[in-house]
Design a binder for these strands. Structure first.
Lengths: 227, 227
DNA sequence: CCGAATTTTGACGCTGCCTTGACGGAGCAG
DNA sequence: CTGCTCCGTCAAGGCAGCGTCAAAATTCGG
């Protein structure tokens, strides 16, 4: 579930966004001024920050700069000012997008999807595999259609993490063996065959014809995020 | 130098952007309709695409979808329509940003910086051969026109990597044989004939008349990046 | 110390890759 | 014209690599 921090000093906007985002299954936190925004960002570690520039206590651009000092999370700026200069300043300070008020909620949601899609490559904490939602960081699997979530053994988690960590990228057998079983097992491809089969059996809808946990014959394995 | 492809059917906008971007040290190409936009994108491999949605021959969203099929380059949409629905469609199709006309050039430039800044981190080295986009690092091939991407065997990848690594340069048969099959196979030119044929069959549009995987009789082989 | 879960090891069939050999045509020299 | 070299093409056999099943060995909690 994507964690969003919303920073705005107008309570009704905060409230409207909170309701809309929660309805779409976002995990939402809010802040009403620059100081608490910085605190919340550090404590809550959001995947995405929606930031109003017109804060009572601090310049919005300054907030962007401070946040950018330690995190790469996407920032979407909201602002009443439509001036070119403000936009340039905010974007160059590290913002990813700039939306002028008044704005449509649908548009904001689409822009949120666009920026998180870009950022998802490395920070993806939860991915979809077959009918399962896999949270690698918390070692949690939930079924997307009500049923029971499968359970993975430690070794299975370890192997899956490596693959999921870099979606779309080919990872060589040697690398996988090295990282999961240690340097001395550089050629025991039996392990990989065994555990890839188990992962497919537990996650892929049709284990015989995997769509996301793919084999690249003679080279390695690959995880595809978008099947 | 960042390569930008600008797609718009209004000549004066094309001209204005071209001048402004060239002055800022961008490498600029232009296209006036969807068809030539897709061609240019495949031939020119831009780092960033600025795309007007109101094209004469094709739906802009369709252009986005087609381009997204084989490349990850950021796309900024220009549009006269300010409606929420158009924005959502374009962004969900894979666009990174959406700017409504009329727009300030400074703002567009700032948004270009913002999206390229994001994309810089995850850029992959990809080469175009025939109708295929070849990512040598990730061992991935995607078609530039929708269909399925071909698959290469390990030996085919090995040979192709050597050729692609130094575009335009002639590589001797001895060198290729040595690097792929080992020092003892310094004269088995059968291998090369066999595998060059397979590469051409899988990558060249007309394998009988190769345009990029070329033979230099009596010498070796050569890969041409720009056909 | 016992039992269940997990890891490790071994064996087997099959797909598809590598290898090998043979053949034909283009280009060139004599 | 003739013979030669070099390249492209095709076909077929052997075998490596992958998926699968099964069972032994190990770990771990109670």
């Amino acid at each position: 579930m994507t964690k969003v921090l919303i920073v705005d000093d107008e309570p009704q906007i905060l409230r409207a966004l909170r309701i809309n985002l929660r309805a779409r299954d976002y995990d939402v936190q809010t802040a009403a001024d620059g100081g608490s925004a910085l605190e919340s960002a550090a404590a809550y570690l959001p995947d995405l920050i929606v930031l109003d520039l017109g804060l009572p206590d601090m310049d919005g651009v300054e907030v962007i700069r401070r946040v950018r000092g330690w995190t790469d999370a996407p920032i979407i700026v909201l602002s009443g000012r439509a001036g070119s200069e403000d936009k340039v300043k905010a974007l160059d300070a590290g913002a990813d997008d700039y939306v002028t008020k008044p704005f449509g909620v649908d548009e904001l949601l689409a822009r949120m999807r666009a920026v998180t899609r870009r950022h998802a490559g490395q920070a993806a904490t939860t991915v979809l595999i077959g009918r399962h939602s896999v949270d690698v960081a918390n070692h949690l699997i939930t079924s997307t259609e009500g049923g029971e979530g499968t359970r993975l053994t430690p070794t299975e988690w370890h192997l899956l993490s490596l693959l999921v960590r870099s979606p779309g990228k080919l990872i060589s057998q040697k690398q996988l063996l090295h990282d999961v079983w240690g340097p001395q097992y550089a050629s025991e491809t039996n392990y990989l065959r065994q555990y890839m089969a188990q992962l497919r059996r537990k996650l892929e809808p049709d284990p015989a014809h995997p769509r996301q946990l793919l084999t690249e014959p003679g080279m390695g394995y690959r995880f595809l995020a978008n099947p």
